[in-house]
Computed example of a mutant assay.
Amino acid sequence: MNPICAGRVVLITGAARGLGRAHALEFARQGAKVVVNDLGVDADGSGGSAEPARQVAKEIEALGGEAFADLSDVADWSAAEELVATTVRHFGRLDVLVNNAGFVRDRMLVTMAEDEWDDVVRVHLKGHAAMMRHAAMYWRERAKSGATVDARIINTSSGAGLLGSVGQANYAAAKAGIAALTVTAAAELARYGITVNAIAPAARTRMTVEIFTESMRRPDDGFDLMAPENVSPLVVWLASQEAADVTGRMFEVAGGAVSLANNWRHGPRRDRGERWRAEQLGAVVRELIAAAPPPEPVYGAR
């Protein structure tokens, strides 16, 4: 069986641990050349080390693949631009961007500090936007020069971004922003041969280890339902040439299950044909609520 990403050049952010590491190794197994980007920070974004990214690059080389480690801050606009340029200089091209970098600083909204909001939104949402902007510019210039572009962007949202999550207002807001960014970019970039999709994974990482424990294995066969490696095959497929007609989509992935999540849709509607009076709207709003399906519950809500 031929590897489905043979020769593709893939840049993965947050690639040293958890989901990012699993993606990097699976891409290597499927024939891709991999840029392992990671600052090596702790789960809350503090600290930093070059060793985690270098170790993953060494693992890829041990598999017979090609990789190099990079420590760029992807939420820095100029650093993101340079990372794209470095990838092209090193491998001669860029075909796939996988945005995965992030960390959490969980807190109830009423006790959240300003830096806890800013730092989480910065690394998740701005980190996605900065990398997408500069990768897309590279591909747009290639398309305008007459080259055939077959590029992929795979973003990482979350169930928290789709449904909300108690105690994670900063993280949920950033991940919801990534969902909107994904569909917007998919519409804008299709003309250049770029697809943009997102995943909302459920897997054991440093951010979720207390929720998805090591004991979450099927008793009959030992299948680890929350292993990050369960998510990577879909990411790799979305990056392949076979997925050229799939864009603007959000996939939820957990264990052996893959589902397609639909974004906000227009629902029940009442049109008076002229401006409503405030006292009229109580009954109308209750009719709309009664006619619509109930919303999915927020994670952690009672």
Rank of each mutant, 00 (worst) to 15 (best):
T111A: 14
G159L: 15
R105S: 07
D220Q: 11
R17S: 14
E82P: 01
V88M: 03
R133K: 15
K175S: 10
F91V: 02
F223K: 13
D271I: 09
Q30I: 04
G146F: 10
V36Q: 05
A147V: 03
V74H: 09
V149N: 08
D38E: 03
A67M: 08
R140M: 13
S46F: 07
L162G: 05
E81Y: 04
A69F: 02
A147L: 07
L11W: 10
A135C: 15
A200F: 05
A278D: 15
T156H: 02
D224I: 00
G161F: 08
M250E: 10
A187D: 12
S215C: 00
E242S: 07
V149H: 14
K33H: 14
P219E: 15
R89H: 10
D115W: 03
S215L: 02
V149D: 05
G300Y: 10
A24V: 07
T86I: 11
M250T: 11
E279M: 09
V166N: 06
G48Q: 11
A101Y: 08
A151K: 04
R142T: 00
R218T: 11
P294V: 12
R191A: 15
V9C: 03
G65P: 14
A147M: 11
D73G: 00
N170V: 02
N100H: 06
L19M: 14
H134V: 00
A176G: 07
Q30M: 07
P295M: 06
P52T: 05
A62Y: 04
G14L: 03
A67P: 11
A187I: 06
G31C: 10
K144V: 09
P233T: 01
D73H: 12
D115G: 01
G282T: 13
L125T: 04
M207N: 05
D95H: 13
R204H: 12
W264E: 15
A180Y: 09
W276E: 09
L162M: 08
T87L: 11
G47A: 12
T213M: 07
S72C: 08
I4F: 01
R21D: 01
V209N: 10
A301F: 05
I194C: 06
I199G: 01
N155T: 03
E252S: 10
C5E: 01
G248Q: 11
